[in-house]
Every structure is written in structure tokens, then in C-alpha cells.
Design a protein around this nucleic acid. Structure first.
Length: 269
DNA sequence: TAGAACGTTGTG
DNA sequence: CACAACGTTCTA
């Protein structure tokens, strides 16, 4: 694993390829994957705080909201056997730690102070809503946050910010890792744990994709004999012999950051 | 613990 | 909307 910071830029073919891929336009499904902007989040947070009377709730509470803190699940007509994992709300994000969530956590932990500037009259959320122009476009994460970067009162570790902002993308779990989709260059991978057992409660579940390079992935055609093929209707699984090796592995746990190129973070050089 | 079942996501 | 298939949960 590349646990060292690579400041030399995309020297290797692999890095070049990765960068090329990362530079490609986002697919629609990726572009729409912003749970909310910071301003939206802050507004929602106010509501949440009111609802839960938890304005003094600690970080632990944020990280591990109790069942009572979750939004009440909607009644389902399907079997109660499965927990509904698509209730993406403020606690739910693809990564389990959304940009705005992280900001909130930091603020509450005292690590991040959002000191209003003179022009910051009134609630931060309103100010940013009016000023960023990113309101409602679903891509407001970066637009909302970038102004903060220029302020001396934004004491975020650049790496942490990169982790949070994700270049306008979101944190995805792929190939046993949490990658940032849509990032132009810079942070490549954030490894995270699989969603459900790691406190995400199934939220933020994102499909990993086949690597396309392993032997099973290269294989064409189903065997039509394995259990997956035989139970295709009910199993919803790919042929046993075509199952990607990467996907067979459990998603890694913990977080780590890899900076393939320091170009996007000149302050690191 | 592996396999089955099913919900859900992602893509065309 | 249909379909493929990943992720989660349940069961044997």
C-alpha cells in the first residue's frame, strides 16, 4: 500500500492512467451523489438539533447515533427482514462521514472553528447559501467550502480537507477501498470499512465495481451451472466463475489517505 | 461459515 | 424501466 506521500507526480504509467481516469467527466450517477451542501447541512443540523435537543451532543453521539437519533424509518410493505439501507439522511453518507458531517464533528470537537467574518451576518448557512451560488445544484460541497480554505480561520489539515471535500465527488467504496470519485488529481484513495458493520448501519452502501482485470473478470459468459447462475432470478449474483477477485475480498477497515501527486496540494511540497 | 435470498444500486 | 450484480442478512 502506498502509505507514503508521493510528491513526484504521475510518473508511473499506472499513476498516469489513474489520473486520466480521474480526469474524465463524471458519470451522471456520480455527479448526482452529493447528499447535501454545507449550507444545506447546517440548516438541517439546526432542525436536527431542535428535534433531538442534542445541540450539546458529543462527537461520540454523532458518530454513533442511537436508534432514537435516527430518523424514524418509514413503514415498509416489504418483509421486515431487511433493514432499509436507502434512507440517506444526515447520518447516512456513502462514506459514513460526509464532508459536512465531518465539519460538524470537528466544530463540536473544537478542532474546527467557524469564526464569522464581518460579512458573515447571521447564520453561517444563510450566508453561504447566498454567497456561494452553489445552492441547490447538488455540487455545493466544494463551492461551499473553498471560500473557507482561503480564510486563516480554517484550520483544517489539507489532507483532512481533501478527505472531506473529495473534489466535488463523494467517497465511494471500491475495490476494498474508499475512493473519491470525481477528484481531478490529488487524493486518490481513502480506505474505509464496509458500510454496514462499521457503524454506518448499512447507510452509505456503495457498490464496488469489478476490477475488470482479474481472471474471473476477463472471463466471458456464464457457466450456467454454478449456484449463482442457477439461482440467477433469486440470487442476483454474477456467475461464480466471473466473480471479481477484488469483490470477493472484504472491504478494508480503517482510513488511510494516499496522495499520488502533490500537485493539488502545493503546501505539502 | 458458506450459500441463499433479497434489497438496493448502477447502467443502458 | 429492465436488468445485472453488489451488499447485507438470514439460515443450514
Amino acid at each position: 500500500m502506498a502509505d507514503t506521500l508521493d510528491m513526484s507526480g504521475p510518473s508511473s504509467p499506472e499513476q498516469q492512467r489513474a489520473n486520466r481516469i480521474l480526469s474524465e467527466p463524471l458519470r451522471r450517477s456520480l455527479k448526482r451523489s452529493h447528499p447535501c451542501s454545507l449550507s444545506e447541512y447546517l440548516n438541517n443540523t439546526n432542525r436536527l438539533s431542535h428535534r433531538h435537543s442534542s445541540s450539546s451532543m458529543g462527537v461520540r453521539g454523532l458518530l454513533h447515533p442511537t436508534a432514537a437519533q435516527h430518523r424514524p424509518t418509514q413503514p415498509r410493505q416489504t418483509k421486515p427482514r431487511r433493514a432499509h439501507s436507502s434512507n440517506i439522511d444526515l447520518w447516512d453518507s456513502p462514506s459514513g462521514l460526509h464532508l459536512a458531517h465531518a465539519a460538524e464533528l470537528l466544530m463540536r470537537a473544537g478542532a474546527l472553528t467557524l469564526t464569522p467574518t464581518p460579512r458573515d451576518q447571521g447564520p453561517l448557512g444563510e450566508e453561504m447559501k447566498g454567497g456561494s451560488g452553489a445552492e441547490g445544484d447538488g455540487t455545493g460541497c466544494v463551492a461551499d467550502f473553498l471560500p473557507l480554505l482561503g480564510c486563516s480561520w480554517f484550520p483544517l489539515n489539507p489532507g483532512l480537507f481533501a478527505l472531506m471535500a473529495g473534489g466535488g465527488g463523494f467517497l465511494t467504496s471500491g475495490g476494498g477501498s474508499m475512493g473519491i470519485a470525481g477528484v481531478g488529481e490529488g487524493v486518490e484513495v481513502l480506505r474505509g470499512e464496509s458500510s454496514s458493520t462499521g457503524g454506518g448501519g448499512g447507510a452509505g452502501r456503495r457498490k464496488r465495481k469489478r476490477c475488470g482485470e482479474c481472471v474471473p473478470c476477463r472471463r466471458t459468459g456464464n457457466c450456467e451451472e454454478c449456484s449463482a447462475c442457477r439461482n440467477r432470478k433469486t440470487g442476483h449474483q454474477i456467475c461464480k466463475y466471473r466473480k471479481c477477485e477484488q469483490l470477493k475480498k472484504k472491504a478494508a477497515t480503517g482510513f488511510e489517505m494516499v496522495f499520488p501527486s502533490g500537485a493539488a496540494f502545493p503546501w505539502l511540497q
